[in-house]
């Protein structure tokens, strides 16, 4: 791992080490900072928290939120839960997959967008819904969705 990444992880560790149950807050802080949890972080966190690497790895992989690969420039999450399904989430998923040319859990070749599924964003009265880089979007008609996708500047 490059020294700078290691250094940034160390800063997180020092800042949060005093917390009871510090592992999740640390993983969040690392992902907030780097966009993902690099595999090498596992050893660093294991050492700091007196855990085995297997334990830390087990936690990272248990939670859907944590990524172990760097994401593209944008992260687009499409809600696939029931309320959104009742308003056409399947149509939204199809449109997005076709337009971006990738499936869920994949990134476009130009590194513009990572596509992820999500199960409810609490926007169920404004379905179908999506989240783009932490901002929510609701009532996604085909036109509104196309306008949103256009902002991502995916190369054809």
């Amino acid at each position: 791992m490059d020294p700078e990444t290691s250094q940034r992880i160390e800063v997180v560790v020092e800042r949060l080490q005093h917390l009871p149950g510090a592992l999740l807050p640390m993983l969040h802080a690392i992902q907030d900072d780097l966009g993902y949890v690099p595999p090498e972080a596992v050893a660093q966190l294991a050492k700091a928290l007196n855990l085995s690497r297997a334990e830390v790895h087990g936690v990272v992989t248990f939670y859907h939120h944590f990524r172990t690969e760097p994401p593209a420039r944008h992260v687009l999450q499409i809600c696939r839960a029931e309320a959104c399904q009742s308003m056409g989430a399947e149509r939204v998923a199809t449109q997005v997959r076709e337009r971006l040319g990738v499936d869920f859990h994949e990134s476009t070749a130009d590194g513009a967008v990572t596509l992820e599924p999500v199960y409810c964003l609490g926007q169920c009265a404004c379905a179908p819904a999506a989240m783009l880089d932490g901002e929510v979007h609701g009532r996604l008609t085909a036109e509104r969705l196309e306008a949103l996708l256009a902002t991502l500047k995916v190369s054809p």
């Binding site: 592992l23 999740l24 969040h28 334990e55 939670y63 859907h64 944590f66 999500v118």
Partner: peptide, 24 residues
């Protein structure tokens, strides 16, 4: 404290495990 996208962590004992820094 922030969860991490696991539905099961809404179950109270799984939630407590997660708060303790473990798998839910």
């Amino acid at each position: 404290r922030r969860g991490a996208g696991a539905y099961i962590c809404g179950e109270e004992t799984s939630l407590l495990e997660s708060l303790e820094g473990k798998r839910g």
